[in-house]
Amino acid sequence: MNDAELKLLIENREFHHVFQPIRNLSDRSVFGYEFLIRTSKFENPEALFTYAKNKNMLIDLDIAAIFNAYITFESYQQEFMNARLFINIYPSTLTDPDFLNVLESLQSLKAISHVKNEHVVFEINGSEDIPDFSALKKVVALLKQNNYLVALDNVGEGRSSLRASLELEPHFVKLDRYFSKDLANSEKKQKLIKSLLGFFDGKTTTLVVEGFEEGCDVAAAKEIGVQLGQGYLLGRPKLSP
């Protein structure tokens, strides 16, 4: 794919979203859905974002994906009901001056859209380094002022993720799948998650554990007090909610 083809992919939105549920571990009810981008042009969605970043089009792709998520929501509004909608976004997109225009556009959509700000969760990708924490904190504060929710993804994976979880005070902190794998048999992982649950009290920040694939690991997470989980065992990404 060359630059022109990538530009057309973004402008024509030659991609779609699938939805993966985030569930309450207490009763397996759906708490929210993470919107995950898919395209026939790239087998691996991460490769699409990496390519866009290398071509200096990451913000264009991110913004197009945000608006496509809103459009998709309108198509399934009855199915989504009061679920939280987790929309992925990179830190570099949030701190780009053009993102303020995006917020203005989203605010203008309120009159014709069924999407409530308090149900939208901007999920910040934790794998990208954050060069300017002060700028990101200002944008996150603005999101909160407009009643949007904020999540930090891949905590435990990126170098900046733990610092960000402290300084940004997100509504949700999502633990990388490393922590759910073999959780039932790892006392160290259980202790670590317990300590994080003690720090993130569930009132201002709620812990979400990703990557569940085994029932015993879900049971272990539930036993130590994890409220929310995500993973193939709890629901694979699908084309409809």
Rank of each mutant, 00 (worst) to 15 (best):
L8K: 15
L9K: 04
E11F: 06
N12L: 13
N12S: 13
H17F: 08
Q20D: 06
P21R: 04
I22S: 03
N24K: 15
S26D: 12
D27F: 09
S29E: 12
V30R: 03
E34T: 00
L36V: 02
R38D: 05
S40R: 14
N44A: 15
E46D: 13
E46A: 15
A47V: 15
L48D: 07
L48I: 01
N54E: 15
K55G: 10
M57I: 08
M57P: 02
I59Y: 11
D60K: 05
L61Y: 01
D62R: 01
I66S: 03
I66K: 04
N68V: 09
A69N: 03
S75E: 14
S75N: 13
Y76N: 09
M81I: 10
N82H: 12
L85K: 01
I89L: 02
Y90K: 09
S92I: 13
S92F: 07
S92T: 14
T93L: 08
D98V: 15
D98P: 08
N101I: 11
V102A: 03
S108V: 12
A111D: 14
I112V: 15
I112S: 15
H114K: 10
S127A: 15
D132L: 10
D132Y: 07
D132Q: 04
L136A: 01
L136M: 03
K137Y: 08
L143S: 06
L143K: 09
N146R: 15
V150N: 04
A151I: 00
D153A: 02
V155N: 02
V155C: 08
L162H: 00
A164K: 00
S165N: 02
E167F: 14
V173K: 09
L175T: 11
D182N: 14
A184S: 14
Q190L: 04
Q190S: 05
I193D: 05
S195R: 09
L197M: 04
G198Y: 06
F199T: 13
F200M: 07
G202A: 03
K203P: 08
T205I: 09
V208Y: 00
E210G: 03
F212T: 00
F212P: 02
E214C: 12
G215K: 04
C216A: 14
C216R: 15
D217I: 04
V218Q: 06
V218A: 02
A219Q: 12
A220Y: 06
E223Y: 07
I224D: 07
V226D: 05
Q227Y: 11
G229C: 10
L233G: 07
P237A: 04
K238M: 13
L239S: 10
